[in-house]
Computed example of a mutant assay.
Amino acid sequence: MIYENDISYEIRGAIYSVYNNIGPGLLESIYESALDYELKKLGLKTKRQVVLPFHYCGDQLGSFRLDLLVNDKVIVEVKSVAELLPVHHKQLISYLKLSNFRLGILVNFNVNNINEGIFRKVNGL
């Protein structure tokens, strides 16, 4: 069994690989595709644009979409923006709470130093 922390380590490595190969400044969809490719090369199971139902007071009122779900355990939210805003962090935290997943990675590829663009978020359940 592979745990969230192990998956997170592999995700970070894949993020570095994508960033080092194509750099900043492209569309989010490009980074999502490249990251999906790198993760699959590592033998991880990935799903893109995963639609999950949104329930409120016991009723399904809609859905939300995860950029990447890795090994059915870790959410990866991909951004390519000039600046991450607090709402981007809150979005991933909300996704974690609504889905009951424990770990998420928020990555902004539009940075000069990729170390400044990777954020790990934990759902305390």
Rank of each mutant, 00 (worst) to 15 (best):
N20V: 04
I105S: 04
L103G: 01
S63E: 07
I15R: 15
I15H: 12
D72C: 02
D6G: 10
H55W: 11
S80N: 09
Y19Q: 01
G62N: 05
I2D: 04
R12F: 10
I11A: 05
K45R: 12
L92Q: 11
S17L: 10
F101A: 00
L92A: 06
G58P: 14
L42V: 11
R65K: 14
N110W: 13
N110H: 15
Y31S: 00
V18W: 11
K47E: 06
I75W: 10
P53N: 05
V81A: 04
A34I: 15
Y31K: 06
E4H: 14
Y37L: 00
G25E: 04
E28P: 06
L61R: 15
I15Q: 10
L52S: 03
L84P: 06
V78R: 09
D67C: 09
Y16M: 06
G43K: 14
F101Y: 15
K97C: 00
A14D: 02
G58S: 05
I75P: 12
V18F: 13
I118A: 03
V70Q: 06
R102L: 01
D6S: 12
I30N: 02
H55L: 01
F119D: 00
K121W: 11
G58A: 04
K97F: 08
L92P: 11
Q60T: 13
S29Q: 09
I75K: 09
I22P: 07
S17R: 15
E32I: 07
P53L: 01
K97V: 03
R48G: 01
G117T: 14
M1A: 10
V78F: 07
L85D: 04
N110D: 12
F119E: 04
K79N: 03
G43N: 09
N100K: 13
L84G: 05
S8C: 08
L68C: 02
K41F: 11
L85R: 15
D59L: 06
L68R: 10
I7W: 11
A14V: 12
G43Y: 14
R65D: 01
E28V: 10
I114F: 08
R120F: 12
I15D: 08
L39N: 07
F101H: 14
E116K: 15
V107I: 09
V111W: 14
I114Y: 09
L98F: 11
K45W: 04
D67V: 13
Y95Q: 06
V111T: 15
N113T: 07
L35H: 13
N115W: 12
L66A: 03
N110F: 12
V70H: 08
P86H: 15
